[in-house]
Each structure stands twice: as C-alpha cells, then as structure tokens.
C-alpha cells in the first residue's frame, strides 16, 4: 500500500528512493541468475569447442608430421647426386608410427606437392607440403614411354631428345605430366628415385641433362 502511494506520487527522485528502499531484491536476483545461466552456457560451449579443437589440432599435427616425413624423403632423393643415388623405398606405416590413423590415411603426390589426408566422422583432416625438387608421379618406364610418344626418343643417354623439339617444349611437357595428382596406397611401399632426361643441345653435339625425381608404386 505504501509502495502504491509512492508510485502514484512518483517523481524520479522518489522512484529511485523506492527502488533502493525495496529490500526484496527480486529483480536483482532474477537478473543475476539469468546472467549466470547465460555465462555458464557460454563457458561450457567454449570449453567444449576448446576440447574439440585440441583433438582436431592433434590430428592436424600428426598429419603434418607424416606429410613432412614423406616430403623429406623425396627432397633427400633430389639432393643426392645421380651417381650415388639409388632408388629409395618409403613406407608410410614404418614402425607403426601412424598407429592412431590405422590404414585410413590417404596420400597423393604431384609435381609440386605431397598431400596427406584422413577422414573421420565425415570430417576431413589434411596436410600439404611443397616439394623442393622437380618431381613426377610416374615410374621410369612411364616417363620414357611418354617421352617416346611425344618426342620420338625416350630421353635416355643412348637416345637423347633431338634438339629441334627445343628445351622449353620438353620442360613444359614434363611440367604438364607433373600436374597430374597420383593417389598412393599407404599400405604399400613407395619408390622414390632420381632420373636424368637427356636433350641434345642446339649444335647437336652435346647433351644436356634434366634432373627429375620419380615417385611411384
């Protein structure tokens, strides 16, 4: 009754006084509890996302490591001189180091990069690493066959590509071969080897060599 009276004769000052004097504090309680509920929901959602992101980051980090390992194997083959380089064999599941992924890893290689990916519950994780050396996702026989078809010579030391085709035409042809992405079976061994492709230079007396790394299964 007293409160009603105050409201009827309310001026801003009296209203404020009434608001402060009202010690039931129901609106304070309501507001603070609502705020508390909102904040709890937000914090719980953030924690849930943080935990989920940590799991995703862990997958990404492991895939990064696998891609880096494979990329290093290819780059090391590129660095070694042709005379000392034999064929290297790479295993994706060596020492069971990728145990968390089982056999579900997908790997592919192209002339510019290696890619490793993994799918879990409809979500795709992946890592891509650039290659430092020119690479072809083909075997020695396939490269020689392609060169034979395009230039009538397989580019061996005994059968260099004739000079009239031009150096640029050969490198562009090989670059086009490298754009094709080759999927690899991660449970099988991967062969990494260096090869030389010979081209006659313009006077036709000397040969020039092009270095490429071949990655195939």
């Amino acid at each position: 009754m007293k409160i009603k009276l105050c409201l009827q004769k309310s001026t801003p000052r009296k209203y404020l006084f009434h608001f402060i004097a009202d010690d039931r504090a129901w609106i304070d309680l309501l507001l603070s509890k609502v705020a508390l509920i909102f904040v709890s929901i937000i914090i719980l959602a953030a924690l849930y996302h943080l935990a989920a992101d940590a799991g995703r980051m862990n997958h990404d980090r492991q895939l990064d490591l696998i891609a880096q390992d494979f990329c290093s194997a290819i780059n090391s083959a590129g660095k070694s001189s042709y005379e000392t380089a034999g064929g290297n064999i790479y295993f994706f599941d060596a020492y069971n180091k990728y145990g968390n992924f089982g056999s579900g890893i997908n790997a592919s290689v192209s002339g510019e990069y290696v890619s490793v990916s993994f799918e879990e519950n409809g979500r795709r994780y992946g890592s891509v690493k650039p290659l430092m050396y020119k690479t072809l996702p083909l075997s020695e026989d396939e490269v020689r066959g392609e060169l034979m078809g395009a230039f009538s010579a397989n580019g061996n030391i005994s059968q260099p590509i004739p000079a009239f085709y031009g150096y640029t035409a050969v490198t562009e042809f090989l670059a086009a071969l490298g754009t094709k992405e080759e999927n690899l079976n991660t449970s099988m061994e991967v062969h990494i080897e260096k090869t030389l492709i010979y081209i006659h230079n313009l006077n036709g007396t000397e040969v020039k060599e092009l270095e490429y790394i071949l990655v195939h299964q």
Binding site: L36, I43, A46, L50
Partner: peptide, 27 residues
C-alpha cells in the same frame, strides 16, 4: 541491507569469464 548481495555472483562470474578469456588467449 544486503544491497550488494545479489551482485556477488555476477562479480564472481565476471572473474571466471575474465580468467577463461585470459586462459584461452594464452593457449
């Protein structure tokens, strides 16, 4: 009069939020 009483949980919640934000930023 316990005028500040209902706000105690807001202050403590604000501290938790600030703590969480700092934790997330450091992480």
């Amino acid at each position: 009069k316990a005028f500040m009483e209902p706000h105690n949980d807001i202050i403590s919640t604000a501290m938790i939020v600030i703590g969480f934000v700092i934790f997330a930023a450091i992480l």
